[in-house]
Nucleic acid binder design. Structure first.
Length: 466
RNA sequence: GGCGCGGUAGCCAAGUGGUAAGGCAGAGGUCUGCAAAACCUUUAUUCGGGGGUUCGAUUCCCCCCCGCGCCUCCA
């Protein structure tokens, strides 16, 4: 079956192909750089990465824009409190975000764009919306009038026609005609950053940046727009309203939303104070690949229940896969081929592909991988894994790793080179021969301290870094 | 109240109208100088509860219970 995704817009699973040629035009909402990203944020970015990689594996080229929101209320507030300029302040967290992304092996989008570098374009877009009478001014700010956009609500599937301010909507705070109207442009305030533009001095509202930057780099209709579920409303709904009011064309054909990461029964969030950063986990000794595995292993439309156990579990699971790879690379297999295993390998591959085609079912894809690992291990144990089975197995792992990318350990400065390790192992084996177990255990312990783990097998000692 | 998601073994978690994937942990075993590491085997008569449809439901329908999210800044 073909590649298909659940589209929030239609609430259905739909077959996906790009609208034009072979290029997928995709926009995903990136971080607001006012703090470190927590692993809930990173889950969404990992989902985007898996999406990218799978589209790529399926033969598509990518033209992907991710924004960095570097101006909004929280940022301004924090920067002010820190006594820093907006740029000085956001630079720190932008760099941190890029570091985290690199640690998690998230592919870099073709365009990583910053809101503050597109202020004039936003102003121009707002001006155009005003010319089309989609806006009104109030106390120096400019609002989008949703009553002018009848399709408002089509993404979140809510009916906003019977307009009534909800009990929890603070109607006093803004001078708005309708509680759901949203700010396109905010009046300048003393001590806050603002820009001079064709529509006057001020700063942009949150939603306009995505519409403007998406269309600037990708055109009026995107193939895919993705982000976290909590952005569905109002952010993405507002993006649709603005963009489609502007162009009269559908803003995006597909809308994909990643579910939340849950910690102790609640959504991980800064405001609840129950958040963990990647740095926290790495500080506890977890490997970045294990974090990546943990985040990728639960299909994106399911809530991910985070526990320290799930972290340890991920760590072990990655190790199991690597051990298999190590065996494949180091053991000597007799000539010939195990036909039945060859067939299993083929089946594992098609099961893997089919799973990811099915709205990125990563759990199912992993099951295909682990089942093959077990079968191949059993064959190896029984001496029924033959030389000609090596390449197909390696090809499977290569396919697996183009998406999951966890097999290669993140290089650490262990302070010991391969040759040195080999030499110590040779010395240890001599010591073992002469029953000098004190010395052999000493070497084992020494290497262990350097993150090198020895495995004594029938075929001799092999080692791996951990 | 509106919209949406979910409740499957100790934990995480797939899945299908035809009799429960996978990972971790646990138990047993193989290997080993001892270990470690690794590998293998094993672990839910049962899928929140109650009805219904069906030859057959965890999977479809109805009701109920529980948890969560969005509806306000939020990945």
């Amino acid at each position: 079956m073909a590649l298909r995704f659940y589209n929030t817009l239609t609430q259905r699973i739909e077959e996906f192909t790009p609208a034009h040629d072979n290029v997928v035009r995709m926009y995903t909402c990136g971080p607001t750089v006012w703090n470190f990203a927590h692993i809930g944020n990173l889950r969404t970015f990992t989902f985007v990465d898996i999406l990218r990689r799978w589209l790529h594996a399926r033969g598509y080229q990518l033209d992907h824009v991710m924004n960095i929101t570097d101006v909004d209320d929280r940022i301004i507030q924090q920067a002010l409190a820190a006594g820093k300029s907006l740029d000085e302040f956001t630079e720190v967290y932008t760099a941190a975000f890029l570091e985290d992304s690199a640690a998690l092996r998230l592919e870099r989008p073709e365009h990583l764009v910053r809101a503050t570098r597109h202020i004039q374009e936003m102003a121009a877009a707002i001006q155009k919306l005003s010319e089309k009478s989609y806006t009104y001014q109030s106390e120096g700010s400019i609002y989008f009038r949703i009553a002018k956009f009848p399709e408002y609500g089509k993404l979140s599937h809510a009916d906003f026609s019977g307009i009534r301010a909800g009990a929890r909507v603070d109607t006093d705070r803004y001078e708005k005609d309708n509680a759901r109207d949203f700010a396109l442009w905010k009046a300048p305030k003393e001590g806050e950053p603002s820009w001079d533009t064709v529509i006057g001095r001020g700063r942009p509202g949150w939603h306009i940046e995505c519409s403007v930057m998406a269309m600037k780099y990708l055109g009026e209709t995107l193939d895919i727009h993705a982000g976290g579920v909590d952005l569905t409303f109002p952010h993405h709904e507002n993006e649709i309203a603005q963009s489609e009011a502007l162009t009269g064309k559908p803003f995006s054909r597909f809308w994909l939303h990643c579910e939340h990461l849950i910690l102790s029964g609640e959504v991980m969030s800064k405001s609840l104070g129950n958040f963990l950063t990647l740095r926290d986990l790495l500080g506890q000794g977890f490997h970045p690949e294990a974090v990546r595995f943990m985040l990728a292993s639960v299909p994106y439309r399911k809530k991910l229940n985070f526990t320290m156990d799930s972290m340890r579990s991920a760590e072990q699971a990655v190790e199991r896969l690597r051990n298999f790879k190590l065996r494949l690379d180091t053991e000597k297999f007799s000539e010939g081929v195990n036909e039945s295993l060859l067939e299993s390998t083929r089946q594992a591959l098609s099961r893997f592909d089919e799973a990811l085609d099915d709205d990125l079912n990563t759990a199912e894809a992993l099951a295909a991988a682990f089942e093959l690992v077990r079968e191949a291990n059993s064959a190896m144990d029984a001496g029924e894994f033959h030389a000609a089975n090596t390449q197909p197995a390696n090809e499977f792992l290569a396919r697996f790793d183009t998406v999951f990318d966890v097999l290669r350990p993140t290089g650490k400065e262990t302070g010991i080179g391969d040759a040195e390790i080999e030499a110590l192992i040779a010395e240890r084996n001599q010591a073992r021969q002469s029953k000098n177990f004190a010395r052999s255990d000493e070497i084992r312990g020494q290497l262990h301290g350097l993150g090198v783990i020895l495995e004594d097998t029938k075929e001799g000692t092999r080692w791996k870094r951990r």
